[in-house]
Amino acid sequence: MSSDPIRIAVRRLPHGRDLPLPAYATPGAAGMDVVAAEDVTLAPGARHAVATGFAMAIPSGYEVQVRPRSGLALKYGITCLNTPGTIDSDYRGELKVILANLGDAPFAVVRGERIAQLVPAPVQTATLTEVDALDDTERGAGGFGSTGR
């Protein structure tokens, strides 16, 4: 890791007592694996906010991003919506992962199965200043695809 880890307080909820807390699978992993605290079957095209069985207190100045697991995405078409999802430092409710089935077969989410990754990240806040005009750039107001083919 490139810097000292931040400390995040975690509270287990009753339905998550016997589940592992989020953890790094290897020393070089960027994200902590998080597991499901419920069983649910996702039909093709369906989505569900899957319970994890814990809540956390993220320090001010940080967020925790929720990201999909690449193996679930490649093998089954299972991904996280609103990716990366953001857990704000002032949220104290249960962490839930919005899973979606983009595949062509039903997918069973099994309690205790790894469903996503959590990546803590610093947050840079901004102050907006309203102006009458913006500076000119080569791209200008060119939108989606305006710099490619």
Rank of each mutant, 00 (worst) to 15 (best):
T129Q: 13
V40L: 11
I98Y: 00
S2F: 12
F144I: 11
F107I: 05
D33N: 10
A141E: 14
H15I: 06
M1C: 09
Y62E: 09
V50G: 01
A29S: 15
M56P: 00
V66T: 03
V123H: 02
P120V: 08
R12I: 11
G148Y: 11
A121P: 02
D4A: 15
V131H: 02
A49Q: 08
V110W: 02
D90G: 04
D33M: 03
Q124F: 06
G71T: 01
A121C: 13
A105T: 14
A9H: 13
I98L: 15
V109T: 02
E130R: 15
I8S: 07
S146W: 03
L42C: 07
V97P: 00
D135W: 00
C80I: 14
L13T: 05
S89W: 14
P106A: 15
D135Q: 12
P5S: 11
I6F: 06
D18K: 14
E113N: 11
A43Y: 01
E138K: 14
E38T: 02
A51S: 11
R7A: 14
A116F: 04
A46K: 06
L74M: 13
R7E: 14
E130Q: 13
P68L: 09
K75G: 08
A73L: 07
V64Q: 03
V131M: 10
A29P: 04
R92M: 09
D39L: 09
A9R: 15
Q65W: 05
M56L: 13
H15V: 03
D136P: 09
S60T: 10
G142T: 06
I58G: 03
R11D: 12
M32F: 03
L128V: 13
A23F: 12
L128P: 01
V97G: 00
A121M: 10
T129W: 07
H15W: 12
T26K: 07
T83N: 12
G53N: 06
H48K: 12
A25F: 07
P44H: 04
G31T: 07
S3R: 15
Q117F: 03
F54M: 13
L118F: 06
R111A: 12
R17Y: 09
A23K: 11
G143D: 00
G61E: 03
A36S: 15
V40C: 06
K96M: 10
F144L: 14
P120R: 07
Y24T: 10
H15P: 00
V110R: 15
P120M: 08
E38W: 04
D33I: 04
G112N: 08
L21S: 06
